[in-house]
Simulated scan of single mutants.
Amino acid sequence: MRFATAIVAAAAAAIASAQVVFPFAPEGPCVAACTNEAGKSLYPFYNDVNPNSPFFFPSLAYTYERGSKNAIAFMTKAGTCMTNCPMDEQNAYRASYYPKLTWYNNNKPSAAPARRR
């Protein structure tokens, strides 16, 4: 019984210390400023730079939950701002959007399981 308890404790510690790795470089300071400004205007805890923040996935949802009211508002604000950014940053943002979307969909926390009746 002690061995099983130790195994469970070790597994729990490993899970708790697991770090999320977001394998994408920033597109540039102008684009980062635009996404941060748009995000904070809609969600005060917006944080799309620290993948281990409890606000990281809720923040990414503003970009990647396509078609939602929040995503439309975010993309409108961020996109309007980005028109003033250097073209290389805009192109980098466009090029990284779909790989980031795929990563987000594969890594976002799943919804809570449905309750049994």
Rank of each mutant, 00 (worst) to 15 (best):
T83S: 08
A14F: 14
P23S: 01
R115P: 09
F24W: 14
V31A: 11
L101T: 02
C34I: 02
C34E: 05
Y46V: 00
A4R: 13
A78K: 04
Y64W: 10
S53W: 08
K40V: 08
N107I: 00
M87K: 15
E65I: 00
A32P: 11
A32Q: 15
C81P: 13
F24C: 06
A4M: 09
K108N: 08
Q19P: 10
Y97N: 05
T63H: 09
F45M: 15
N105T: 00
F22D: 05
A10G: 10
A95L: 10
Y46I: 01
V8I: 07
Q90V: 03
S53L: 04
R117C: 06
P51V: 04
T35G: 09
F24E: 00
A92E: 05
D88H: 14
A12S: 11
F45C: 03
R115L: 11
A16V: 02
A78R: 07
A71P: 11
N70K: 14
E27A: 06
M82D: 05
S17D: 06
M87H: 11
P29L: 03
Y62R: 06
P23Q: 08
T83M: 13
P58H: 06
T83H: 09
M87V: 12
I15W: 13
F3R: 15
P113M: 00
R2Y: 12
N91Q: 14
R66L: 15
A6L: 15
Y64S: 05
N52E: 02
A18D: 04
P44L: 00
N84D: 08
L42Y: 12
W103C: 03
A114D: 06
F22S: 00
A61V: 00
T76Q: 14
V49K: 15
S110E: 08
G28A: 08
R94N: 10
N70F: 10
R94Y: 12
T76H: 15
N91H: 12
N84Q: 12
E65N: 15
P26R: 11
A112D: 02
V31P: 09
W103T: 01
N107C: 00
